[in-house]
Simulated scan of single mutants.
Amino acid sequence: MTERVRVAVLAGGPSAEHEVSLQSAQAVFNALPRDLYEPVAVVVDRRGRWPVELRRDLVDVVFPVLHGPFGEDGVVQGHLETLGLPYVGCGVMASAVGMNKVAMRRAFLAEGIPVTPHVWFTEHEWRATTDHPGLVKSLDWPMYVKPAGMGSSIGISRVTCVEELRAGVELALAHDRTVVVEQGVTAREIVCGVLGGHDTPDTSVPGELIVPGDWLDYEAKYLSRAEIAAIPAVLPERVAEDVRELALRAFRAIGGYGLSRVDFLYEEDTGRLYVLEINTMPGFTSRSVYARCWAASGVPYPDLLRRLVDLAFARSGS
């Protein structure tokens, strides 16, 4: 019998997305085919402490199912690079750019990828002025206020007036020292999965997020039992093709590798598509849309995990 590949499934971490990571990692741990892999659970605690020191004599490859700062922003990826361990997903640069909403948009704009109108400012700039409306004068209400380096809809507010703007910025600053404010648009929320290496990545069928209110917040994503996605999305063929093409362009713009989920806003009235963001380690829970989009594209969950592990080895030359 061929010796099974030892896969360290990293979970937890010190970010606000600790609980989401535990759910995702549990799903990955359970679904890794046992005839091929020997999964090893490695839960990093909320203070960033590791239960074991990873080494090549203990594990063969790492699946960092970590979301948010520390796990999705290049920090863990850099650590694994120093250890010489193959790992699933984007590298240091792509992870860092993909996690930061300012750097991400700069990369997109440099490649001519459409994004919604937005502004950004630091905590110092916010505290240094009383003219808070002046910081967002190029935008119209409603707006969305977001911490630059956080995911899972944490720290995000929809604001419709100056008082709400001030409260939303304070909430965002609790998570990051840089804040992004985006123009709100009336649009459908579309997602598309990317899977593959630098040269020939593939895209999944697009899915659509079912938004119960003005936007899909943390509670709707992870705590509600209501359906959150329609897969595949019902779109005109041309729009679906544009979604997949833009997803590849966004993936390449940040230097992506392995996997990403690209989120879009689709204005039906105008036909415009905006790339909202790219997630370099999307959720892997039973409700998460990345795996569901690939299942609808003919790649069931265990096969998806196998392809991701194979890509990790391919990048490392193992």
Rank of each mutant, 00 (worst) to 15 (best):
S21P: 10
Q23C: 13
Q23Y: 09
A31S: 10
L36N: 05
L36S: 15
Y37T: 08
Y37V: 12
E38H: 11
V43M: 07
D45M: 08
P51E: 08
E53Y: 06
R56N: 08
V59M: 08
V62Y: 08
G68R: 06
G71H: 08
L83K: 11
V92Y: 06
M99Y: 11
F108N: 03
L109M: 11
I113E: 13
I113M: 11
E123Y: 07
A128H: 09
T129D: 10
K137V: 13
K137F: 09
W141F: 13
M143K: 12
V145L: 12
K146Q: 07
T160I: 05
C161T: 12
V162C: 01
E164C: 07
R166C: 10
A167Q: 14
V169S: 06
R177L: 14
V179C: 03
V194W: 13
H198I: 01
D202G: 00
V211A: 00
G213Q: 10
D214R: 02
D214K: 04
A220W: 00
L223Q: 13
L223R: 15
P232R: 06
P232N: 10
R249Y: 04
A253L: 14
A253E: 11
I254L: 15
V275S: 02
F284H: 14
F284W: 09
C293Q: 12
L305R: 06
F313Y: 12
A314H: 03
A314S: 14
R315M: 08
